[in-house]
Simulated scan of single mutants.
Amino acid sequence: MKEARSSSWSDLLPEILGLVLRRLPSLADRVRLRAVCRPWRSNAQLDPLPPLLPWLTLLDGTFLSIPDGKIIRMPIPDKGFCRGSVDNWMFFVHNSDGDCSLMNLFSKATLNISKLDITWLNGNSRYYNSHFYKLMAPLPLESSPGSLVALEGGGRLRICQPPIAVDLRLHLDDITFFNGKLYGLNGNVLSIFEINYGLNGKPKISSVRCITSYPTFKLIPPQPLPDTCLLLSYLVECCGRLLMVRRMIGCNPEIKPCPLESDRTAGFEVYEADLSTKPGQWICVRELGSQALFVGMHCSKSFPAGECTGVEENCIYFVRDYFLGNDAADPLGDSGVYNMKNGIIKPLLSETAAVPQHRGGRRRPTWIFPTDAM
């Protein structure tokens, strides 16, 4: 009994500490635990842990942890406007001259991109089609800082190998890298881009091939959909599959296709690209298994869900980023969690989390996926 009373917290067995860590999916909680003492810090790095909870950027430059609703404040460039993200890298436009950069939110590593024509980022329209921009990289930028980065927006596809960038005029709904190759979606048509390098060493797109036909049938949603819908499409790589996620937003037919603040997401359809046939086919997907999808115009990603993460499996997490006017009291707007099994949409945050206060700002809603390299 005397020896038990004299034991310190630093003597906690590593396997017990690991069990505690597995139930702490929040980055802030893991950092606090590791800061207790050196043994805890070293023992916490022995076993792989579930992924950290995703974050959502808010308009005022803060971050919202999903689904626990914790507000995180991280130093970011004061004069830069966040226009998108890829994993835990943020894309900033610094001025009207087109100076742009990528910054790792945690290591603060920065990759500069040559000046871009960003007139498409400065439009006055508050609707989604004037401000669409999406970044993708074939490899994690931490391990491959010289990797290609694809940036789509304003009817242009930009292939960047920082600091070099080249443009291609082309309308796309979304882009993603899949098995090391760049794919683009226009309506239901999937295209693949062949990328090589010119004599000057600049990356360039040598050819574009359409490789899919239209879906052979539609999903029958569990819940009835409005007669008039705005359709948004996302490309997401999920466990070795390339998925097209179609989001249906109920609209007022008198002002179609522009959404209003009052419009709400009604449902989703998910299709997998079968590239084994010519042309490729879109196959209906009715469940995601243990995965969850986080979709958005500026970042989409699959996430291994489970009891330890707090993220629900077989669900689609979404946020309103198609309407860029000043939100009302609720900065989350048309955000939520869509259950693939029953078609029910729940709030984005857990029942115990408070909805963040609207403080305005000029940031854009985008997903951030923290890494546990601490």
Rank of each mutant, 00 (worst) to 15 (best):
L135F: 10
R209C: 10
L53S: 10
I192F: 04
T119N: 09
N179P: 04
Y234Q: 02
T119V: 06
I164L: 08
P279W: 04
L12M: 11
P215N: 06
W40I: 08
W367S: 09
P163I: 01
T110P: 09
C210H: 09
T216P: 07
L275A: 00
G267V: 13
D117Q: 04
S143W: 11
D167W: 00
F323Y: 11
G80R: 04
H94K: 01
K134E: 02
Y128T: 09
A329N: 05
P54W: 04
S6G: 12
N129Y: 12
N342V: 08
R30M: 01
W9V: 13
E307C: 13
R30W: 07
T212Q: 03
N129E: 10
K301M: 15
A354M: 09
L64H: 00
N112W: 11
M244S: 06
I164Q: 01
L148A: 06
C238D: 05
Y338W: 05
N124V: 01
P77L: 07
G343I: 07
E3L: 11
L230Q: 08
T110M: 09
N122L: 12
H298N: 14
F81M: 13
F217V: 13
R83N: 11
V86C: 14
V149Y: 03
L151M: 06
C210K: 07
S262Q: 15
D174M: 07
F294V: 11
C284T: 15
F217C: 13
Y338P: 09
A150G: 12
I255A: 07
F369S: 08
P221L: 10
V285L: 06
K301R: 15
M297I: 12
I192N: 11
V319H: 14
I71C: 02
M248E: 09
P162W: 00
E152V: 10
L135P: 02
P203L: 02
K204F: 15
W55N: 03
K218F: 06
S213N: 14
T366R: 00
I118Q: 08
S26Q: 08
L49Y: 04
F318P: 02
G296W: 09
C37I: 01
V93N: 04
F369G: 07
F369W: 07
H298Q: 14
I344R: 07
F91D: 03
F63R: 11
T62F: 05
L260F: 03
K108G: 08
G84E: 01
P50Y: 00
S101Q: 09
A353G: 12
M248L: 10
N326T: 05
L219H: 15
C210G: 06
F106R: 01
S300C: 14
W9N: 05
P331Y: 00
L232C: 03
T119F: 14
R247Y: 06
D334I: 00
W89S: 05
N314L: 03
I192A: 06
I113M: 08
L59I: 03
E194Y: 12
F303S: 15
G267T: 10
P331R: 00
I72D: 03
G201N: 03
